[in-house]
Design a protein around this nucleic acid. Structure first.
Lengths: 228, 228
DNA sequence: ACCTGAACACCGTTCAAGT
DNA sequence: ACCTGAACACCGTTCAAGT
C-alpha cells in the first residue's frame, strides 16, 4: 500500500497555505500591518497560534506570500493598450490600485516583490512596450528595472499614507498647507511662490504626474540612444 | 528666587533628545531596524529603558526624529549645480547617499519625511531648478511633489535591500539571474530576449537611470506645457 | 500528518516610588 | 525635574505531547 496525500484518514487538513494567506490579508486590511501576529492569525483561523508554522517556516515567509498575492492581483485582469505609452501608464495605475486596495500589505511587501521574478507576463508586457519605444537588449533591461522599481516604490509610498492613523494624516496635511506658507519670500523666493499650490495637490494627481514624467523620460531616452 | 533650567541641582540631565537620537541611529545602523527597542536604547544610554519616555512620548516620535536627522544630513553639504539638470541629479544622489549610509533608518523613516516640510532650503532649490526648466506656479508645485516623492521612494527602496539579511539577498540575486532565464522564449519572447542582461545591472546603475528618466521627463513636460 | 499547549526570551507602555 | 523598578498585556519561536 503506497502512502499518498489522498490516502488515509486525513482527507482535509484544517489549514492550507491559501487559507492562511486569505486570513492574513483580511487581518492586515482591517486592522493594519501591526495586527498581523501569529496569535491573531490563529484566532482568525480557529487554530492554535503555532499551527501556521506547519505551513510557513516563519512569519517572514507569510509576508512574502502576501507579496506574491499582491502582484498576481495587480496584473490579473490586464490588457495591453493601443501603444506602449498607454500600456505602461495603465500597468502603473493597476499596480497602484492593488497597493491602495491593500495598503498595509503593500507597505509590508513591496520591497520583496521587486527583488524576485513575480510575474513573467507582466515583465514581458513592459519589455515589449519598451521595445516598441525603441529600447533593446541591455538598455531595455536597465530601463525595465528602473521603471518597475520606481512604479512599485511610488505605489507603496502612495499606499503607505493610508496606513498612518487619522491624527498623523491630518497633521501631515496641515503641515503641507500651513508650514510652507511660513517660508520667508526673501530667503526662499521660489518656494514661497508655489507654496499656495502645494496643499492643493492630491495623491491621485501626483501619482499620475509621476508616471507621466517617467513615460516622457523613456521616450526621450529612447530618442537619445537611437540617434547615437 | 526664580525657577530656571540652569538653577538648582540639576545641571546636566543624563539624557537629551539629541543623545537619544544619536544612540538610536547607532543601534539601527549596527543591528538593523528591528533592534531598535526601548530596552536596547536604555542599555546603550546606560539608563532604565523607560527613561527615554521622559523625552519622547512614544517610540513613533523617536522614529520621526530619525527621519528629520536623515533629511538634514542629506541636504547639509549641498551646493546647486551649473544647470537645473545637474542640480536635480546631484540632489537625488545626495538623498540616496544618506539613505544608503543609514539604510535601516531610511526604511523606517522615509514615509514620514515626504509628508512634512522637512527642509525649506532643499525645497527652494528644487523649485528653482524647475523654474529654470520652464515650470511655474501650479505646474511647478505638482512636479515638485511628484519628483520629490519618486526620488525619496527610490532612495528608500534602494536602501531597503541592504536591510535584508545575507541569505535573503543572495536568494533574490539568484532569482534574478536564474529564474528569468527559465522564461519560455515562445510564451515570453521579449522577456527572454533581455533575460541575460537583467542580472547584470547593479543598484547604482539602476538608480542613476531612474533619475535620468525623471529629469528627461521634466524637460519633456516643460516643453509640452510651454508650447500649449 | 497535523495540531495543541506549555515554556522561553523577548516587546511597548503605565505608574507609583525614589532622589 | 528626572530616573527607577515592578507590573501588565503582549510578541515569535521551539519542542514535547497528543490524536
Amino acid at each position: 500500500m503506497q502512502h499518498s496525500p489522498q490516502a488515509g484518514h486525513h482527507p482535509t487538513p484544517t489549514l492550507t497555505r491559501d487559507s492562511i494567506v486569505d486570513a492574513a490579508i483580511q487581518i492586515v486590511e482591517q486592522e493594519g500591518p501591526d495586527a498581523l501576529t501569529l496569535r491573531r492569525l490563529g484566532a482568525q483561523l480557529g487554530t492554535n497560534h503555532t499551527a501556521v508554522l506547519r505551513h510557513f517556516s516563519n512569519k517572514d515567509h507569510i509576508v512574502r506570500a502576501l507579496a506574491e498575492r499582491l502582484m498576481v492581483e495587480a496584473l490579473s485582469d490586464f490588457a495591453p493598450g493601443n501603444d506602449w505609452r498607454q500600456t505602461l501608464i495603465s500597468l502603473a495605475h493597476q499596480v497602484r490600485s492593488a497597493c491602495l486596495r491593500h495598503p498595509a500589505v503593500a507597505v509590508l511587501a513591496a520591497v520583496r516583490v521587486s527583488r524576485s521574478p513575480a510575474e513573467f507576463q507582466g515583465a514581458d508586457t513592459v519589455i515589449a512596450a519598451l521595445s516598441e519605444a525603441g529600447l533593446r537588449d541591455r538598455d531595455a533591461a536597465l530601463v525595465y528595472r528602473a521603471i518597475t522599481d520606481l512604479a512599485l516604490a511610488a505605489g507603496a509610498f502612495s499606499a503607505s499614507v493610508l496606513t498612518l492613523d487619522e491624527d498623523a494624516r491630518q497633521g501631515d496635511r496641515d503641515a503641507m498647507g500651513r508650514e510652507y506658507l511660513l517660508a520667508s519670500p526673501q530667503t526662499y523666493p521660489h518656494l514661497a511662490a508655489v507654496a499656495p499650490f502645494l496643499a492643493d495637490i492630491d495623491d491621485d494627481e501626483q501619482f499620475a504626474m509621476a508616471i507621466d514624467l517617467i513615460v516622457a523620460g523613456v521616450a526621450a531616452k529612447a530618442a537619445t540612444l537611437a540617434s547615437s
